[in-house]
Amino acid sequence: MRRYDDDRRQPSKDAMTTQENGRKRRRGSKGPTITAVARHAGVSAMTVSNVLNNKSFVNPATREVVLEAVKALNYTPNNAARSLAAAKTLRIGLLHRDIDSALLSAMLVGSLRATSRLGVQLVLEIYDSTDPIGSIEKVAENGIDGLLLPPPICELASAAGLPERHDVPMIGLAPGSNLRNMDCVRIDDERASYELTRLLLDMGHRRIAMVTLPTALVAASRLRGYLRALGDAGVVADMDVVWEAPPSFEAGLGLAERVLADTRNFTAVIAGNDDMAAAFVNVALRKKIAVPDALSITGFDDTPIAVKIWPALTTVRQPLALIAEKATERLVAILRDEETEQPPQAIYVDYSMVERQSTGPAPR
């Protein structure tokens, strides 16, 4: 075993003092962190990062507050860290409340098509239907880069002013009307409802019932189209046959059981979506009401259930997958600063009428 003298192994006192001072200088030279800047400005660290990277979607007032905090703390960004952050994979969240819904399935197909092509990660997030706003805020503050919001949560987020309160870009998917503070991709629901009502009117129907969706801008838009079509045909609207129900098969069953009585005074029903229309067909056939000979029924969206029942549904084909794909492309362009800053835009896609066996001439 080799041995060394103690004086050869121990550093001198002067060397120890020099090393210790060096360590102290290195510790003392550490400046404020991005977390400290965020705390000083009262925002999240992600917001500070967005400002420093000159992201165009940051609220101007927020940008000013962050830059003042940077100046006050004499913060110097770590260029290496910023380069790593710029190279990271973007994470986009798609919020939903029902994994089994046809709407989510279609939108998921479109979003995945775009994210796969653009090299972006798609994250599915479930929101609490009893606290949708709180759910969005939780996701927005948890490191997501952008959000895709389907109906009706996009409409609720817009009304609550979330795009102004969070520097996470949000895009609405298929809202019932344009949103004042976020981009959206949609069809013209009012015109689609008008054309669907005209289709029934042209078949001779004059007593046309309608099912609207609760707390949704789409309900107001489609109701306007329905009322306008009736007015143009000289038909006086009867609001007693305009009902409201959640957009589910179960809700449709409950409503249909109540309104499809022997004394009904309508010959056609425009349901809020295909699931509800399928429920009406189910109850009508069980009550021995012939569809379409005694009662015509229409859906909306043209989801798979529209052709899985008999008679197959007349409906409006809303291209949900295309809507989600275009919304994802738009969101990624914003996040990558490929889009110049501009007011919220509505991107319209085409819809089409699909006439099948659930509608026919009005009974005489």
Rank of each mutant, 00 (worst) to 15 (best):
G272N: 11
V66Q: 09
Q19W: 11
A362L: 05
S56I: 09
L196W: 00
V48F: 07
G252I: 04
V354R: 10
S44A: 02
L104F: 15
P11E: 01
Q357L: 05
D167F: 06
V185H: 08
D302F: 01
A38V: 05
I347C: 14
P319E: 04
G28E: 12
N178A: 13
L67W: 08
S101D: 06
S12M: 06
E257N: 09
A160Q: 06
Q342N: 11
L124F: 13
G42V: 01
E20T: 13
A192F: 01
T263S: 12
T267V: 03
M1D: 00
I126C: 15
K287F: 12
N74Y: 02
T62E: 04
T359K: 07
A157L: 05
L322D: 14
D302A: 00
Y351N: 01
L253I: 13
I334W: 13
R207K: 10
D5A: 11
A327D: 12
R9L: 15
P152G: 00
P214S: 06
E195W: 04
S101T: 09
L230Q: 13
D189K: 02
M203V: 01
R224D: 15
W243E: 02
E164A: 13
M107I: 14
A114H: 11
R207Q: 11
R27P: 01
K55A: 02
R82T: 11
E137G: 01
A38T: 02
P304D: 05
P363K: 03
L335P: 01
P319N: 07
T130Q: 05
T314Q: 06
R356G: 00
A220P: 00
A327K: 08
A279M: 14
P304G: 05
R8D: 15
S129F: 12
L94V: 01
P361N: 03
E68C: 05
D189F: 03
A362C: 08
L253H: 01
P132H: 10
M276G: 11
A216M: 10
R26I: 04
N265G: 09
T76H: 11
A81N: 04
D189C: 09
G31F: 12
G28D: 12
E190C: 09
A256I: 13
A102Y: 07
P11H: 02
I297K: 06
D5G: 07
K326E: 14
A15D: 14
A81S: 05
C154D: 10
R336Q: 08
Y226W: 05
V123L: 15
D232G: 03
L199R: 13
L52S: 02
H96V: 12
N50K: 02
K13E: 15
T303A: 08
A216H: 12
G176V: 10
A45L: 01
A216F: 01
P292Y: 00
G93F: 10
N50I: 04
D128S: 13
R258V: 07
N79A: 11
E339S: 08
D240P: 04
L52H: 03
D350A: 08
N178W: 04
R39C: 05
D14Q: 13
A157W: 08
Q357D: 07
S158M: 06
Y348F: 12
G31Q: 15
D274N: 14
S83P: 00
P150R: 12
A261K: 11
S135F: 04
